[in-house]
Amino acid sequence: MNVPALETHELSVSYRGKPVLHGVDIEVPPGTLTGIMGPNGAGKSTLLKAVMGVIQPDSGWVKLLGKPLGEVLGRIGYVPQRESVDWDFPVTVFDVALMGTYAGLGWFGRPGKAERARAMEALEQTGMVDLATRKIGELSGGQQQRTFIARALAQKAEIYLMDEPFAGVDAATERAIIGLLGKLRDEGRTVLVVHHDLQSAPRYFERLLLLNLRVVAHGTVEEVFQPEILEKTYGGKLTLLSDVARRVARGSGGGLP
């Protein structure tokens, strides 16, 4: 019982010989809402990408719901970083939401009535029904983010990974999104959110994961949101750690100089 929703062991990731994450060991309990925080370049997005299998780690492993990623495909949902989306792509809001339902279709399937209803319902929840036929490039920042949240909702996943869903959105959207995240948590789903605003973090999340190349602290907000721990997280980079990790990675033939 009580299998952690997400578990990583000694996860190390480097990009072209430059370490981004080092020895990350975390267990995220199911049904929780966790904020992932840390300074720029601390490896927050990289952690999500490694969990999703987009980046191959140098060492360590990831388990989701107690299983490797390959066995839980379709039970994981995600919201990409705004910058990584091609906003000129010719798709409408409804198309994007519908993509959330593709998981079970197989090679030749096509979304039917049930899938369309699911996508529409998700758009209703995020208040995007009126804009369903808009091209995504014509939306405001907040609307764009709502579209992708709707897609995640349509996925009906058990674990949600979200990369800065609050970046560049208006206050109303931010409130709406945080409300939806709380609802997801109450339904027993696990939500991990990369977040950068320290002010709002203790209000938004019940757990925090503080990253800076390695895990500085991980626990409930009360345990973790302490001045000295935050100081440790944001108080400059561990240059020695990244220097030595880079040399080790390079020497073992990992990346290029």
């Binding site: 000694e10 080092h22 020895g23 060991d25 190349l213 390695r214 895990v215 500085v216 602290a217 440790k232 561990l238 020695l240 750690l241 030595v244 990790a245 040399r247 080790v248 020497g251």
Partner: peptide
């Protein structure tokens, strides 16, 4: 360094150091 500065658990650092000492 790893235990004091990088918040590693003491039982995790030996293997790390075994790799790093050469560099």
């Amino acid at each position: 360094y790893l235990t004091e500065r990088a918040a590693f658990k003491p039982d995790h650092v030996h293997d790390e150091a075994e790799r790093a000492e050469h560099w």
